[in-house]
């Protein structure tokens, strides 16, 4: 089972591979894109420069370093869509990355996928920015030229394993997220702007919408007591802290034929990135053993210094008996 880890600086590559990452992914926002569209309409869903490489030179060195250690490098080109005017810049970035030896392009835009698949000899990974929830969608994207699918976070373990089995029949590789940053809303179906965290001259600073402190008022004719319970439940994500994990699901993913587990967090420190890779590697090594769930919970405690709970669980309480 492969481990796909994030990086944002070329010097992180060797350390992550040595820790056990077999595949790495990154984004690249260069000055040309930044000038026209800024990070607000980022080329790759991450709106902070710290999460991105800033030159093709850095990308080339990263690929060289990874390949020399037999690891792969993927590039995110996964904005939910690109408009007509943006496409030439996107295609230019893809062409350059392919010429540097990139192993896969992570893409969300459905119109762009067949274009890239036809023009370049490179694997296309379907980003979670274009979520696949069913077997027909797998077939659809296979026909468009996708070779690999990143499953959305919003699947049950059972659904993910079932889709992975269908993907295998189609010759598609599959990935599931297992650490960091659960999106309360489905990535590809959420249109809130993350950029409001940043202090750009033209953008008012505000909270991440999905975890903002909303006051919920129930509408309807239910009793005051029921409304009180419902309103509090509706505010469950408000001010919640992201300590998110799906390590417990690795056992079933590995047994169910999921090819790769993915770690989110391109903007994290190298220390956090290394700790994440170590934890995922330990969970993969422990998969299939009798005390696996206990091992996974211990790994969670070491990573986040806390007990896991529902709002932090990628897969709906799989770690404490629900699936």
């Amino acid at each position: 089972m492969d481990i796909l880890a994030p990086f944002s600086k070329q010097e992180e590559v060797e350390k992550l591979v040595n820790a056990g990452a077999t595949e790495l992914y990154c984004g690249l926002v260069d000055a040309n894109w930044n000038k026209k569209y800024s990070l607000v309409s980022s080329i790759n869903l991450r709106h902070d420069q710290i999460a991105n490489l800033s030159s093709f030179g850095a990308l080339g060195e990263s690929i060289e370093s990874a390949h020399s250690a037999k690891a792969k490098v993927f590039l995110t080109l996964n904005a939910h869509f690109y408009s007509e005017k943006q496409l030439p810049l996107v295609l230019k970035q893809a062409e350059k990355a392919v010429s540097l030896g990139i192993d896969s392009l992570i893409v969300a835009d459905s119109g762009l996928i067949p274009k890239l698949a036809n023009e370049f000899d490179v694997e296309i990974s379907l980003s979670t920015g274009n979520p696949v929830f069913n077997s027909k969608a797998l077939e659809f994207f296979k026909e468009l030229g996708v070779g690999r699918v990143v499953f959305p976070r919003h699947l049950t373990v059972k659904e993910a394993v079932s889709l992975a089995a269908h993907a295998k029949k189609l010759g598609l590789k599959t990935e599931c997220f297992v650490l960091n940053v659960i999106c309360p809303y489905i990535d590809g179906l959420c249109t809130f702007q993350h950029i409001v965290e940043k202090n750009l001259s033209f953008v008012p600073v505000g909270p991440l919408a999905c975890r903002a402190d909303f006051k919920a008022t129930a509408i309807g004719s239910a009793s005051p007591e029921k409304k009180f319970i419902a309103e509090n439940h509706a505010m469950l994500w408000s001010n919640s802290i992201s300590r998110d994990c799906g390590l417990c699901a690795i056992d079933e993913f590995k047994g169910g034929g999921v090819d790769c587990v993915k770690i989110a967090g391109r903007a994290h420190s190298i220390e956090k990135k290394l700790a994440d890779v170590n934890a995922v590697k330990a969970a993969i090594d422990a998969a299939g053993s009798k005390g696996f769930k206990g091992t996974a919970r211990e790994l969670y405690f070491r990573l986040f210094h806390n007990k896991c709970d529902y709002p932090n669980c990628y897969y709906g309480g799989v770690g404490f008996g629900e699936s």
Binding site: H154, L155, T156, I182, P184, Y185, I186, L189, C190, T191, F192, A209, C210, A222, K226, K227, I229, A230, N232, H233, A234, L236, W237, D309, Y310, P311, C313, Y315, G316, G317, E322
Partner: peptide
């Protein structure tokens, strides 16, 4: 205007105290 969709639905089982704090696909 549609802004976002989820399968971690907070309306699901929202009025059951026994479900308080639980979020996921249930």
């Amino acid at each position: 205007v549609f802004v976002a969709g989820t399968r971690f639905c907070l309306t699901a089982n929202c009025s059951k105290l026994s479900h308080a704090g639980r979020v996921g696909i249930f």
